[in-house]
Design a binder for these strands. Structure first.
Length: 311
DNA sequence: AACGTCACCAACCGCCAGAGC
DNA sequence: TGCTCTGGCGGTTGGTGACGT
């Protein structure tokens, strides 16, 4: 007994085993997603309460889009909300059904690294390695179908008390509308950052219209949480549990679009309604030429020419 | 085929705030 | 009022697989 206690008192770290997941799921089924520390105190797992909570939130919770790459819409939502809220990943995640703060954080981190590489490569083109591009091509059809531009609004200013940035939309020479963030301190950096996805896309040298869809899919922001429903998978999970708590907590949720690979489901209100929208009527319109003038001249040296829509 | 680089992901760590005593 | 505990959040790190050379 004492030996078992000593064993239990050891805190286990590292990857979770399926058995541990089962125990954790059972605990949540029985007591709900709370009292995490009691899991260890009861000797159910050798994990800390924090670890249990994290595992549940990030991996075991129903409705998670585990293993699904961020869709173009989700990427856009993150980019926009990051500009609005800063690194408030938990808050941003509430606008992305099925995504956790960890997902958003990881996504942004990867994105920032890519940005850094792009900037670095653009600065030293002659002796640096070309940007490594993955073969996967994300859906950018929404990027090419964004609404008409509008000037930065006061709301953008409110959301950034420092008055650092706001976003707008410009159209490149291929007729592709792009979101543009501007920064009082470093407009060049923000402009590049806001368009990293497009840059990556350009750098891939793929035909952007091959998978394009004509329909404009403008994101809309749902009420966090309350719009959740059960995916088929989680409904299966639910079916296994007759616990009233699960029914109470999850059965009322409603998010039919949570399936993997779902593309085109709105997440945000139309950007113009939230003050980050089109630039129509601005005093300082950004033309395709002026936009690309913001980039280092050699930035696209390693990129293939963008094919025309007819190709 | 081997190696290096990169992207992605899971998990941990430290800090902070709130609740309970 | 102060201490402790717990949960939440953001930052960071390490592992792994994919890809390029």
């Amino acid at each position: 007994m004492a030996g078992k206690r000593a064993e239990i008192s050891q805190i286990r770290k590292g990857p979770w085993k399926a058995e541990e997941d089962e125990v954790l799921i059972y605990h949540v089924k029985k007591y709900g997603p709370r009292d995490w520390s009691s899991i260890r105190s009861k000797g159910l797992l050798q994990r800390t309460g924090k670890s249990c909570r994290l595992r549940w939130v990030n991996k075991l919770r129903p409705n998670l889009k585990n293993g699904c790459k961020f869709t173009a819409e989700e990427e856009r939502v993150v980019i926009e909300l990051q500009g609005q809220f800063g690194n408030k990943w938990a808050k941003i995640a509430t606008y992305l059904p099925g995504r956790t703060d960890n997902d958003v954080k990881n996504f942004w981190s990867s994105r920032q690294k890519r940005l850094a590489r792009i900037l670095q490569n653009s600065g030293t083109p002659s002796h640096s390695k070309p940007l490594k591009i993955k073969k996967e091509v994300p859906d950018f059809h929404d990027v090419s179908t964004l609404e008409a531009p509008e000037s930065c609004s006061s709301m953008a200013e409110e959301s950034n008390p420092m008055g650092q940035s706001c976003s707008s939309y410009i159209e490149n020479s291929e007729g592709i509308k792009m979101e543009q963030l501007t920064d009082a301190k470093n407009p060049h950096l923000y402009t590049i950052d806001a368009n990293i996805a497009q840059l990556e896309f350009l750098s891939r040298g793929k035909n952007p219209y091959a998978e394009a869809q004509p329909q404009i899919m403008f994101p809309q922001i749902p009420q966090p949480q309350s719009y959740l429903t059960l995916s088929l998978e989680s409904q299966d999970l639910l079916a296994k549990f007759e616990d009233p708590y699960f029914s109470q907590v999850f059965a009322s949720m409603d998010v039919p679009e949570l399936g993997c690979g779902h593309v085109g489901q709105p997440f945000l209100e139309p950007v113009r309604n939230r003050g980050l929208g089109p630039r129509e009527g601005t005093d300082n319109p950004v033309t395709p030429d002026t936009f690309f003038d913001d980039f280092p001249a050699d930035m696209f040296d390693h990129m293939e020419p963008l094919p025309s829509p007819s190709q």
